[in-house]
C-alpha cells in the first residue's frame, strides 16, 4: 500500500515537471512581453522581468486593431465549429451504423482526403472562393474549414464503442423513424465526443494560418493569427512588442481552453463510463 503511494507520488512529480516544461516557452513569451528592450538583450537571459514595463502592451493596443482581428477569428472559429460538429455528427453515425458498401467507400474517401495536406489543394480552393466573390469575408475563410475527417472518425469510433446495435434495433421495433432515432437516441449519447470535437474544431480554426493569410488581404479582414504575423516585419522583429501582442491573444485563449476543458474531459470520459 505504502509502496503504491510512493510510486503515485513519483508519477505525479514526473508529470508535474513535464507539464511545467511544456509550458515554459509560453511562460517565457508572456514574461518577454513585460521586458524593456535593454533587458531583452541582456545575458544571461532573465526569466522574470527585472523592471516590468507596460510599454509594449500599450503600444500594441494603440497601434493595431487587435480587438477586431480577435472578433474575426472568433466568428470564423465559431462557425467552423458549428459546421464541423454538424457534418461529423451525422456522417460519423452513418458510417458506423449503416454498413453498406457505398457508405464504406465514401468513408474511405473521407479518410483518404485527410491524408492530403491542405497546402496541396489550397491554391485551387482559393480560386473557387474568389469565383464566389468571398475573398476577405468570414464565409470565404469558412470554405476551407467546413469539414474535418478526424471529426467523422472520432464520432464513428464513439458510436461503435458506446451505442450498441440492440439499442437502435429496439427503437426501430418501437416504430421510431431513422431521423427520430438519430435526434433523440444517438445525439444525446454523443454529447461528450461532440463537445470534445467542438473544442478541437474551434482551436483548429483559431490557429489557422496559411489559409487566412491568402483569403484575407485587407487589414480589416485579418484573423488574429495573420495580424500577429504582421509584427514579423521583413526588417526588424521587435520581440518585446510581438510578445505583448501574443500574450494578449495567448492568455484569453488559454483561459478559454482551461474553462472548456472541464466539459471537454467530462464529455470524453462520459463516453467511456458505459461499461
Amino acid at each position: 500500500m505504502n509502496r503504491r503511494r510512493r510510486t503515485d507520488l513519483l508519477i505525479d512529480l514526473g508529470l508535474g515537471i513535464f507539464g511545467l516544461l511544456m509550458l515554459t516557452p509560453l511562460i517565457m513569451l508572456v514574461a518577454n512581453a513585460f521586458k524593456t528592450p535593454e533587458e531583452m538583450l541582456s545575458w544571461p537571459p532573465t526569466l522574470i522581468p527585472r523592471d516590468p514595463t507596460l510599454d509594449n502592451l500599450t503600444s500594441v493596443l494603440n497601434e493595431t486593431p487587435l480587438l477586431s482581428w480577435i472578433g474575426n477569428s472568433l466568428a470564423f472559429a465559431l462557425l467552423s465549429t458549428l459546421a464541423i460538429v454538424a457534418t461529423s455528427g451525422i456522417a460519423g453515425y452513418i458510417v458506423a451504423k449503416f454498413p453498406f458498401r457505398t457508405i464504406n467507400i465514401v468513408f474511405a474517401l473521407f479518410l483518404a482526403t485527410a491524408i492530403v495536406p491542405f497546402e496541396v489543394y489550397m491554391i485551387p480552393l482559393y480560386f473557387q472562393v474568389k469565383q464566389l466573390g468571398l475573398l476577405n469575408t468570414v464565409p470565404g475563410l469558412l470554405v476551407g474549414y467546413l469539414v474535418m475527417s478526424f471529426g467523422i472518425f472520432l464520432i464513428r469510433q464513439n458510436v461503435l464503442a458506446s451505442i450498441p446495435d440492440e439499442l437502435i434495433e429496439a427503437a426501430r421495433i418501437d416504430g421510431g423513424g431513422e431521423m427520430w432515432i438519430f435526434w433523440h437516441i444517438v445525439l444525446p449519447l454523443l454529447r461528450g465526443p461532440l463537445a470534445a470535437l467542438a473544442v478541437l474544431a474551434f482551436f483548429q480554426a483559431w490557429t489557422a494560418f496559411a489559409w487566412p493569410m491568402i483569403v484575407a488581404t485587407k487589414r480589416s479582414a485579418y484573423t488574429i493569427e495573420v495580424g500577429l504575423a504582421l509584427f514579423q516585419t521583413g526588417y526588424t522583429v521587435d520581440l518585446g512588442r510581438l510578445s505583448a501582442a501574443s500574450a494578449c491573444v495567448l492568455v484569453p485563449s488559454v483561459l478559454a481552453f482551461v474553462l472548456l476543458r472541464r466539459n471537454f474531459v467530462q464529455g470524453v470520459a462520459a463516453t467511456g463510463m458505459k461499461e
Partner: peptide
C-alpha cells in the same frame, strides 16, 4: 487603408490579388 506587411507576404498577396 494603408496595409504594409513583410515583403515576402506582400509579394504573395500581390501575385494572388
Amino acid at each position: 487603408n494603408v496595409e504594409p506587411i513583410a515583403l515576402r507576404e506582400h509579394e504573395k498577396r500581390v501575385a494572388l490579388g
